[in-house]
Design a binder for these strands. Structure first.
Lengths: 353, 353
DNA sequence: TGTTATCAAGTTAACGTTAACATATTCTTC
DNA sequence: GAAGAATATGTTAACGTTAACTTGATAACA
């Protein structure tokens, strides 16, 4: 059998002409709406098969003014929690008959915007945005929300009267991580993964600062280290290399910290390497806490104490919020939900008995 | 300023009416094609701003018969190499003005098909498929390729006269991993992550078998263990849990292996845990090789010997192949490229001096 | 028997763009 | 100053579908 390659695909009218009915009749057969006699239906289906007909989604969407598709913008899919988020969103949506298109914007405002535009251009029915805040991106996002596209943000600091948001309580997570170190008796606790100036935008750092404050431990800016994010672009995601460098810097201080809270697990792992290289024993000489509970955390030596955020739940709730917005266009109350994180204590802070 | 929420978005004609010109003139201003006087252009742009006009991509795509968008179907975005692949594909495409929409199909033929359909429904200009082979999915993929949609497969065993393919040389990778173990003097080498019956579809396992064969080491089926994939659905991706179980099974044999080759790093890590639990020293009592060189591999204790496949390059080449197919519709030679893997020797096979 | 449902189609007019062609004006150039 | 080129706009007709309306049967019912 020869292939039909490159021939123009058949349209409703082609099918209609073959059978000898009106295009609308074929449409009725395809969509299953309206009356069609059994006889006609069969003839149509036969022709559909013969012509290899497939309905043109573009035309359909244009006419129906909806695409049954939702977009998800994430920054870095390599992050395990992005995966969990995406899967949860997809699962929830697909149960309601929606498709999910994912766009990745690798940490730059420009790509963030490109992704948003691409999705809007395809008239998706709604967008879940899970990238970090940035000025230009927020502006564009505001325009999009203004124009009536349902939007939900996940873990992004963005406010708009028609945009719901969901995030983990990073402040509390950071607070509890630090509190945990304090409870273990540490007084000099470093923070790796962001600069002190970033504290306005970084909840985890705020939690750290707040916990120290609560226990009357004065903030030593030299103990807070990391590459500073520019304000117009995304604050650089903190990597293993940054953790390594940061730890080196902390260890070179006259009075190095006895514990560090790293902004995320990657950073923590980098810090761990630097500490080991310097001959420090973990957790005896240096306690380390990470954030995110990536698969990595379980396999470091020693296993990493970290903070887990409920990504699956966030994804599910985000999808549900969006579906509500989509179906219930006039809904006006914006919802803002914050979920608790969970401190997972492993051996990088507490020595095994 | 009040928002324009929920009002129907302005169209070309709305803008045209405001300015007092024909819609086509506005279209010319927007697209930048054709002659428009400076004066008119300015008036139009003003109205565009005032009405918050945004061109409807759906209508445009329908008319132009192209969407400047490419779809990527991947199985599991949590896998670090999926990330690399996606990023490389995106980068290459965006340099040529194409958007990338990613669909994930979490390891089931049904979702694989759903993803393909969703993309085809949106009339994307081409598809990169990086999911594992499965019967129904392949059938659908054949239909899609037949209908003239440019398709490129990555690491998927699929053949079609109009579909290019790119993959890593998993056979050779498996061969070299096994060869490495043999070179170290091992005679009883296990394979974890697939059943012996899967060998028809699993190149890594074939490489293992071939390497043993070359060195006149007879194949002991008891040494090959893993959950068997069904033929209609995707062979289950091998996880850490499977590695753990598999290792336990191998260790319970009367004569356990002295080395194992795991189908991927996750599986290897699971196997490692089981081995440690049994009191075995790695690599002295048991040598382990993984596959994929995930970030994990560097951080296990001891660091994992593994095989790296060049995902970035695969992604780039896949995108280039696809772009060529898209722009050069009548091209007929199908291209099939296979890239070398790289064995990365770490301490899970060779003890540190 | 006439009135109303129910069923099975067909017709029309969008959805919002743009390619292709047509028309009108102005500018060159010999 | 006539012929052609360049510029500036308008008109028409799709792209492929479906919502809404219309028409004509046939069946159901009082």
């Amino acid at each position: 059998m020869r292939h039909d390659i490159r021939r123009k695909p058949a349209t409703l009218s082609d099918v209609a002409a073959t059978v000898g009915v009106a295009p609308m009749t074929v449409s009725r057969v395809i969509s299953g709406n309206g009356y069609v006699s059994e006889e006609t239906r069969e003839k149509v289906l036969e022709a559909v098969k013969k012509l290899n007909y497939r309905r043109n989604g573009l035309a359909r969407s244009l006419k129906r003014q909806q695409t049954d598709t939702v977009g998800l913008v994430i920054g870095d899919i390599s992050n395990p929690f992005s995966t969990e988020l995406a899967n949860a969103v997809r699962k929830t949506l697909s149960a309601r008959g929606y498709n999910l298109f994912i766009c990745i914007s690798e940490h730059s405002a420009k790509e963030d915007i490109t992704a948003l535009e691409a999705l809007v251009d395809h008239n998706i029915d709604g967008i879940v945005v899970a990238t970090r805040s940035n000025k230009e991106g927020d502006e564009r996002l505001t325009e999009i929300a203004n124009s009536g596209v349902p939007v939900v943000v996940v873990g992004r600091d963005f406010r708009h009267e028609a945009v719901d948001s969901i995030s983990a309580d990073n402040f509390k997570g950071g607070f509890e991580a630090t509190q945990h170190l304090i409870d273990l008796g540490h007084k000099r606790i470093g923070f790796i993964g962001a600069a002190f100036e970033d504290r306005g935008r970084l909840k985890r750092l705020q939690g750290y600062i707040s916990a120290l404050g609560k226990h009357k431990i004065s903030i030593d800016e030299r103990l807070i280290t990391g590459r500073r994010g520019s304000s117009t672009d995304t604050p650089g995601y903190s990597t293993e290399a940054i953790g390594y460098e940061g730890m080196k810097r902390l260890l070179s201080l006259p009075k190095p910290p006895t514990a560090v809270f790293a902004r995320n697990d990657f950073t923590a792992v980098g810090a761990m390497s630097a500490a080991k290289e310097a001959g420090l024993a973990i957790p005896q000489d240096l306690a380390i806490v990470g954030f995110d509970d990536t698969p990595l955390a379980l396999h470091t030596t020693p296993p990493l104490t970290t903070v887990r955020q409920p990504m699956r739940v966030q994804g599910q709730i985000a999808a549900e919020m969006l579906l509500r917005r989509i179906s219930n266009k006039d809904e006006s109350e914006t919802e803002e939900r914050v979920l608790d994180c969970e401190l997972i204590i492993r051996e990088s802070t507490v020595a095994q008995r």
